[in-house]
């Protein structure tokens, strides 16, 4: 992998990896670490990718694994307070966009993000990979090294919880 190709992948997939990391850790600082470790793995291992989808799946799988590795220390730091959770949706966008020069506005998106961040971890990642990355439950199962039936269950429960929190914003769906 050339330096040019590495930098292209970083530029193309940074936001994707960052969102996956956030959806798992709920912590911006942990997401930073996950992103750095993920791209360090890319730099160090330089896999022989076959196409762009291969790149995307590889990065997401590594990011999830890195997030899992961080999870223990995350709990030890006791940062998962209710107050932080409620503010998480706005803070995530506020900090990232402020650094990127984008003016923040409170939107429906903030309400949705907050509801997503309140989901239990095991539902959050599945929901994100399904609704944002548009992976099938089979593909998510492969990425997370879980059974597809487990992924389906988590997705269904995540939807139910989101519907309960978002009410009219979130539509009823067939399971």
């Amino acid at each position: 992998m050339t330096e040019h190709e590495y930098n292209r992948i970083v530029k193309t997939y940074m936001d994707i990896v960052y969102r996956v990391a956030l959806s798992y850790t709920k912590s911006r600082q942990d997401a930073y670490d996950v992103v750095q470790n993920t791209f360090f793995n890319l730099y160090r291992k330089a896999p022989d990718f076959t196409d762009e989808e291969h790149v995307r799946k590889w990065l997401i799988r590594v990011a999830v694994n890195e997030a899992k590795n961080l999870w223990g220390s995350f709990w030890k730091r006791n940062v998962d307070s209710l107050h932080q959770l409620l503010e998480q949706g706005a803070e995530i966008v506020h900090e990232g966009n402020a650094q990127n020069g984008i003016e923040e506005q409170l939107t429906e998106g903030n309400v949705v993000r907050t509801a997503v961040m309140e989901l239990p971890k095991k539902y959050r990642v599945v929901v994100h990979l399904y609704y944002y990355e548009e992976y099938s439950t089979k593909e998510i199962a492969e990425l997370l090294q879980e059974r597809e039936s487990t992924v389906r269950t988590r997705l269904a429960r995540g939807r139910t919880l989101l519907k309960g929190r978002l009410k009219e914003v979130w539509l009823d769906e067939d399971e």
């Binding site: 960052y18 930073y32 750095q36 900090e95 990232g96 903030n110 609704y131 944002y132």
Partner: peptide, 22 residues
């Protein structure tokens, strides 16, 4: 729901400083 979700998370971007770190 996918559009609602995507719109919400399209607003989330990695901070510029992260690019420098990798």
């Amino acid at each position: 729901n996918k559009e609602i979700y995507k719109n919400a998370f399209d607003e989330v971007h990695a901070p510029a400083e992260l690019f420098g770190k990798v």
